[in-house]
Design a protein around this nucleic acid. Sequence first.
DNA 1: CAGGATCCGATCGGATACTG
DNA 2: CAGTATCCGATCGGATCCTG
Lengths: 139, 139
Amino acid sequence: MDWIWYSRYIMNRSNLQQTTPAQEQCTATPLGHAIRLLGDEWILLIVMHLLPGPMRFNALRTELGHISSKTLSQRLKGLEELGFIRRDAFLEIPPRVEYQLTEQGQELGAVIEALEQFGKKHLSGQKPTSCSPCALDTE
Amino acid sequence: MDWIWYSRYIMNRSNLQQTTPAQEQCTATPLGHAIRLLGDEWILLIVMHLLPGPMRFNALRTELGHISSKTLSQRLKGLEELGFIRRDAFLEIPPRVEYQLTEQGQELGAVIEALEQFGKKHLSGQKPTSCSPCALDTE
DNA sequence: CAGGATCCGATCGGATACTG
DNA sequence: CAGTATCCGATCGGATCCTG
């Protein structure tokens, strides 16, 4: 019975890879943009820790655990360019830089809250599955 | 003046990499779990497209644009294991499989809505920055 | 049609070293 | 302290081929 699938495959293989119909809808809309923004583990984590108030660079690093300075400064720069956080650098010895959420950034709190509600409701005692490739030691 | 920084560096380098204080808080809490779940671009996109109703495998592929079957089935399997979508397979010729959100999955709609509100509010006319490494052609 | 298996290039991100 | 630059291994995900 292989020929059934085979023939269909051959007949339909002509024009299948060309049409990219809703792809731009997935990436060009504000929602798509937002999804790609939050499609990064660190972004939300950073915003979450910034919600209570301003924080310094290394304080963030400590709170976030094992993030590298490269990754952190990357994300912070990105968030700053988007206007979601503000960077205040004090030219002192030793240097001090504080990051805090702008009004726009604060509104991400709503998303985080929704996320938290959801997490508490459905992900409480669950163990990671194939969705969570987290290999962190839980000592 | 290099010696200032240098000496401080040497003095503080002893115990800095050991303490992983809030790392387990970032990953073991429901919120952390949720963040890691949504820390994947596709997950939210899939859920979004599934909100209106059940959908078949290739329909999803078409809607999502350029996702590969491997990635899609991966995500679907993960979501199914978490209990957020249900997979109904009809053993016919040709095969038909429909995916739909469970009640738990529906509640992700709230998160998506929050995200959409935010996106429409702050990301409308914005161009991607370093936060969005999207290299998709916008033909 | 709905996937699984495999290959492999691109990307991400951690570790390290260095600077002001 | 607050980063930047570089290296490099691990991972992701797309392309391709294959099956029922």
